[in-house]
Nucleic acid binder design. Structure first.
Lengths: 119, 119
DNA sequence: TCCTCATATAAAAAGATGCTCATATACTAG
DNA sequence: CTAGTATATGAGCATCTTTTTATATGAGGA
């Protein structure tokens, strides 16, 4: 019921970024070198490196050097399922601020109109 | 496999905040008026209102006015399960940047020392 | 050893977010 | 209608995050 706030917050903060999600999407299909990640995401090298570091330091990714290349992979494959679950939920979210301004229903007014008293 | 980036990103961004998570934690136990939320979170009124708006506009919360009070509740109770799943994952994350600086293993050097060649 | 490739790090610039303070709106009681 | 309570909104700052630009490090080959 009371989950560990700090941990979850960090998790959401780390994943709450477009570029990092795209990187994860690429790595979801398996281990990749940085060069491959650059190709597939079209991110500038230095920016990708920045985000990879964040993911790595959060423990989401694992890095290993082999020769001149550094290979990244998901630390836990189970992250993919979690992402899918989140995506599923996220896509059901209906955005209630459809119009330019959200307006509170004029409760008191309506009650008067309908001859009702507050309960 | 390829989840809807934009939706998930927004979801993570909205949940990636300490105060918002605390609000959700309170609402996890059921519907609450703003006053009650203020009591339980000890947030300044205006700040709580700010975060409530973000959660509401994201579709995570639902608000309804009854008399002078406005009651908030989770739009989808299933969010709680999702949060728990995320918490579970988040808590397993081992932070690899233990020391002040992370150092890449000196692969080439090690190979030379061990008389190996790159493959 | 020197050069080049692959990748990381640091510092500065640009952008986004969260917080506070002041004020507005909706409702109810008198 | 007036005053008081409940809650929302808006402007300005401070802070944190992302992006860019410049530079460093480590590996392999000539």
């Amino acid at each position: 019921m009371a989950f560990s706030l700090a941990a979850v917050e960090r998790f959401f903060k780390v994943l709450g970024d477009d570029n990092r999600l795209r990187i994860l999407q690429v790595l979801g299909t398996g281990e990749r070198s940085v060069s491959e990640i650059l190709d597939q995401t079209r991110l500038p090298q230095t920016l990708a490196s920045f985000h990879l570091r964040i993911l790595r330091e959060a423990g989401v990714l694992t890095a290993e050097r082999r020769g001149p290349f550094i290979y990244y992979r998901l630390a836990e494959r189970s992250l993919l399922n979690l992402l899918e679950a989140c995506a599923k939920y996220a896509e059901t979210l209906t955005d209630p601020k459809a119009g330019p301004e959200f307006h509170w229903p004029p409760w008191g007014q309506m009650c008067r109109m309908m001859g009702q008293r507050r309960r």
